[in-house]
């Protein structure tokens, strides 16, 4: 986009938006977007999520059901899940296996239970991260569910739902240029295009900072106890990013931008038209625990 901070100061957008998410985005840039008018994102949190060190499965199940009902507008969890997948579908649940902060296994188990309850046959369901291109179920999948935790990332700013599909590329490194700027084009890959039924960004214990690229410290995570659900991965990621940026400001007591900035989320909106990152086009529904929600 070739924008400098000064460009934004001239349009007063930094001060006007007070944007922690995209300090480098002006109102003009958003105005160029041609996405649908708005995207709905549901944030659900529960203060009693953790039972000791582990998420309580019953609380997780209730959170997923309640959030999905609100997202789909269905009255019961059964109807809500059946509006996501049907018995005829072959379903790939794309997770993230990074060992320090993987997709929680409890959520994988619940997704399995929910998908099978819709009538999908067990042989038509696969839950995995690496190897999706060689997985027979993913190869013939008619429906995808995208689920991963959010964390800071040394090259893309944050690990996102958009980035989670990089394993659908035969050459993931080809998406690394300019700090992963073109990740949104993953959604044009034939294995992916038009198949995703639901995006779930896990915000149980998000990682808001890191030191060396792969290092993980609990010091830089916190119990946010949340899930973000939506049909638009850009809107869900942008909402998650706002939470991460706000936590960083809270923790460090000054605005410390992600290094590098998460420009792939911005470009997913302004350049690739994958979805809405513009906060004014995101309809956020908040459910449950609201303390220090940051959004």
């Amino acid at each position: 986009m070739n924008i400098t901070r000064r460009d934004l100061l001239k349009t007063a957008s930094v001060a006007a938006t007070g944007s922690l998410m995209f300090p480098f985005v002006s109102g003009k840039a958003w105005a160029n977007g041609q996405q649908r008018d708005s995207s709905t994102v549901v944030l659900i949190r529960d203060q009693r999520l953790f039972a000791g060190d582990r998420p309580d499965p019953d609380v997780c199940r209730r959170m997923l059901d309640e959030a999905l009902c609100r997202l789909t507008g269905k009255e019961t969890p059964d109807r809500a899940w059946k509006s996501i997948v049907t018995a005829d579908d072959t379903v790939g649940v794309k997770t993230n296996e990074w060992n320090k902060l993987p997709t929680p296994s409890v959520l994988e188990d619940i997704l399995k239970e929910k998908v099978l309850a819709t009538g999908v046959k067990e042989e038509n369901l696969s839950i995995r991260d690496r190897g999706v291109l060689n997985d027979p179920v993913f190869r013939r999948a008619t429906a995808l569910i995208n689920i991963r935790p959010m964390r800071t990332h040394a090259w893309s700013g944050v690990g996102t739902l958009i980035k989670n599909y990089i394993m659908f590329s035969p050459k993931p490194s080809s998406y690394h240029g300019d700090s992963c700027a073109s990740l949104a084009t993953l959604f044009d890959l034939p294995e992916v295009k038009g198949k995703t039924r639901l995006h779930i960004l896990v915000m149980f214990t998000p990682q808001f900072h890191h030191t060396a690229p792969t290092l993980f410290s609990e010091e830089f995570t916190w119990r946010y106890n949340g899930l973000l659900l939506g049909f638009d991965p850009v809107a869900v990621d942008a909402t998650g990013l706002k939470i991460i940026e706000s936590k960083r400001k809270d923790h460090f007591d000054e605005h410390r931008p992600l290094n590098p900035p998460a420009k792939h989320i911005l470009l997913a909106d302004t350049q690739y038209r994958l979805g809405n990152a513009d906060p004014s086009k995101i309809r956020l529904i908040k459910l449950g625990w609201d303390e220090a929600s940051y959004v």
Binding site: T4, R5, P23, R256, P257, N259, P260
Partner: peptide, 15 residues
Amino acid sequence: YIWLNAYFFIADFDL
């Protein structure tokens, strides 16, 4: 150039 913005956003390209 990616690291130009490490502490403070200056430009989103190799200025």
